[in-house]
Design a protein around this nucleic acid. Structure first.
Length: 425
RNA sequence: GGACAGGUGGCCGAGUGGUUGAAGGCACCGGUCUCGAAAACCGGCAUACCGGCAACGGUAUCGUGAGUUCGAAUCUCACCCUGUCCGCCA
């Protein structure tokens, strides 16, 4: 969420950010209305407070007269009249305030200066590692290979839950557990992250804090009886760990990693790249989250992304780093790198990680602050997060990229101690 | 799920209708003292918003929301959370 003051002081900046996202035409009317409402809101506040000040004076005078044993009937009547007037004014103020808030919740973050403007066609490959296989036509797609090896059981997943819910079996199930161990161990021992284990359902305030709600509520599975929501990513519970808290400067950067299952309804995505493990309703992921100062957050995005890349290198999967253009950058994000791995049999680059810096967009929503120095006013932290990594697409890529001529699948060395074998056959 | 008890400032804690934004203590910041520190003493010390170039003025905030009242931390209702006991349970 944006600082409401942007609507008064930096409307041009806000407008320019929306333009670079390619959203100005769509959002211009909203911005105009928000700007007008914000003025109305302030006028209403001023009026309400003036009447409240009047009432406070009258009230105090009543007290004084009572104490002196004098009559206060007239004053009490006046107070009653003021009270009625305040009621009406307050309603007007609350209405304007709620309307402005609602609009602010609908405005995406402003992209950083080094984010290219335009839609996804302006996404830029900034680096790459390893060589994608060019013999994809001779390879078996992961959904067939997984079934053949007995590690994937898509049909039974669909039976017990629905399409997009995956059953891993045997070495496949152990592969999930192995990936979790590998990733968490690297991030805790080599990258210094604190390991956390967090709830997979959260309340509305948490979903709002990270920017998932209210705009994207339909993307989440809800436990309606308790008004709880299945997390789409561990980013939600972990970023909200310090919601409504004030950190010390010495606490920063604060860094967490967490495994979680991730739940996404994928409403509206039906039929699009949904084969096999490409797009599923429930998947597993290890997530990295950082709380940073505004001064270091941009640089920490580079660090975070490189830490995610470490995992891909250990898994010996060729990948590329893509800087998302403004129009393709997520709602809450100020700048995002996607990591994509080539799945040769599918013939596509699969997004296996998305690393973002949110500036103070999430921190303002979630009210996460830090004190720059003792006695100084708290400021909003900057938040970052990135998948490192999402398992399902990694498993798809492992099954395809590491396929051998005899139909077996080679297990990268880093994974072997956890999986207890060097080959799936 | 049931029965009690409770939610007050960074922390502890007083406060049951009228200068209480809130006593007192701790912590923190500045000063005196000291070679320096501790102790002692003096002073300061919430947040957000509105108006104002500023000085400053105003408003709100005692778990959350609604209500009663001229006036609510104090009274009423609903909800949330915490603790204890009981029940249930991996």
């Amino acid at each position: 969420m944006h600082d409401i003051r942007l609507l008064r002081d930096q409307l041009d900046h806000l407008r320019e950010g929306m333009r670079r996202r390619g959203k100005l035409a769509e959002l211009q009317p909203l911005l105009d209305r928000a700007e007008a409402l914000e003025r109305e809101r302030r006028a209403a506040i001023t009026e309400v407070e003036a009447q409240q000040a009047r009432r406070n004076k009258v009230t105090q005078e009543v007290a004084a007269r009572r104490k002196a044993g004098e009559d206060a009937t007239a004053l009490i009547a006046e107070g009653r009249a003021i009270g009625d007037a305040i009621g009406a004014l307050e309603a007007r103020r609350n209405e304007a305030d709620a309307a402005v808030q609602a609009m602010l919740y609908e405005l995406p973050n402003i992209p950083l200066a080094d984010v290219p403007e335009g839609d996804e066609s302006a996404n830029t490959v900034v680096s790459s590692w390893g060589a994608p296989r060019d013999d994809g036509a001779t390879l078996t797609p992961h959904w067939d290979k997984g079934a053949e090896l007995g590690v994937l059981d898509l049909a039974r997943g669909a039976k017990i839950s629905g399409s997009g819910f995956i059953v891993y079996r045997g070495a496949g199930a152990r592969l999930v557990r192995s990936l979790m161990n590998l990733m968490l161990d690297i991030h805790t021992t080599e990258h210094g992250y604190e390991e956390t284990w967090v709830p997979f359902v959260v309340n509305r305030a948490s979903m709002t804090g990270t920017g998932n709600f209210p705009k994207f509520e339909e993307d989440a599975y809800a436990v309606t009886a308790d008004e709880l929501f299945l997390i789409p990513t561990a980013e939600v519970p972990v970023t909200n760990l310090y919601r409504d808290e004030i950190l010390e400067l010495s606490d920063l950067p604060k860094t967490f990693c967490a495994y979680s299952a991730c739940f996404r309804r994928e409403a509206g995505a039906a039929g699009k790249d949904t084969r096999g493990l490409l797009r599923v309703h429930q998947f597993d992921k290890v997530e990295l989250v950082r709380y940073a100062t505004p001064e270091t957050s941009r640089q920490e995005l580079e660090l975070l992304t490189s830490q995610a890349e470490t995992i891909l290198q250990r898994l010996e999967l060729p990948y590329r780093r893509v800087l998302l253009a403004a129009g393709d950058t997520g709602f809450s994000s100020a700048m995002t790198y996607d990591l994509e791995v080539f799945a040769p049999a599918v013939g596509k680059w699969l997004e296996v990680s998305s690393c973002s810096v949110f500036a103070d967009f999430q921190a303002r929503r979630a009210n996460i602050r830090y004190r720059p120095a003792p006695g100084e006013k708290p400021r909003f932290v900057h938040t970052l997060n990135g998948s490192a990594l999402a398992f399902s697409r990694i498993i798809a890529c492992l099954l395809e990229h590491h396929q051998q001529a005899d139909g077996s699948v080679r297990i990268p060395e880093a994974l072997q101690p956890w999986l207890g074998r060097a080959v799936l056959r």
